[in-house]
């Protein structure tokens, strides 16, 4: 368990750092895959099977392929690079380290949260007669339909956000198709 966690955590972090460091866009996309794929592995380890699979399907299989597609459509030459100036890189690195240390300084505050090592497996999934860990498929589905037996009467479902998200996706579909449609280039000269 901890071995897998270490592997995935290292891959996620190093992949993210490599995204920042590498200059070629396609290499950035490659490292982003490594990073996001390992994050999906972390989700599996955190007993969130469905989220992990959604991460793989939507992020890695969908969004990133879309990005690479965009890279290919906009590349003006092979292995296009647009380097940042050295000064910018140094400043960004400094700010990044400061920012990181600031965020890390807030980590001990997580002790304030009411920790419970296995809350979902103990509280949520038994309500759905599923005993194995990471089995959040059915609870998730019901929550998206607005039914929350796991939190009782006071629990709010997510039916309205779900509907809004679906309409939002439709709008995005139409909007993206409209924006990206082929137009005759005017300033070719």
């Amino acid at each position: 368990m901890s071995l897998f966690f270490t592997i995935f955590a290292l891959a996620a972090c190093l992949g993210a750092v490599a995204v920042v460091i590498s200059q070629s866009v396609v290499r950035m996309a490659f490292w982003l895959i490594v990073s996001l794929g390992s994050v999906a592995g972390l989700f599996f380890l955190a007993d969130a099977d469905f989220i992990g699979a959604a991460q793989l399907l939507i992020y890695v299989g969908g969004t990133l392929v879309l990005l690479v597609f965009g890279i290919m459509l906009t590349a003006s030459g092979p292995y296009m690079k647009i380097p940042a100036s050295p000064g910018e890189t140094v400043v960004a690195g400094l700010i990044g380290v400061m920012f990181l240390s600031m965020v890390f300084s807030t980590l001990p505050a997580s002790k304030e949260w009411k920790q419970s090592p296995n809350y979902i497996a103990e509280t949520v999934t038994p309500e759905f007669a599923d005993s194995s860990e990471g089995n959040t498929l059915r609870p998730l589905g019901f929550a998206l339909l607005g039914v929350r037996p796991d939190v009782g009467q006071d629990g709010a479902g997510y039916l309205l956000p779900f509907e809004i998200a679906s309409v939002h996706l439709l709008v995005v579909l139409i909007g993206a198709a409209y924006l990206a449609r082929a137009k005759r280039r005017q300033d070719n000269a």
């Binding site: 007993d47 469905f50 419970s116 996706l169 924006l179």
Partner: peptide, 27 residues
């Protein structure tokens, strides 16, 4: 959602984040 009493809400939020990120990337 795994280690505190937040429960399922954390997973649902991340699901929405994933969906909206895909939409954002398309636009």
């Amino acid at each position: 959602s795994r280690y505190t009493t937040l429960g399922l809400d954390g997973q649902i939020f991340s699901l929405f984040v994933i969906v909206l990120a895909a939409a954002e990337a398309a636009v």
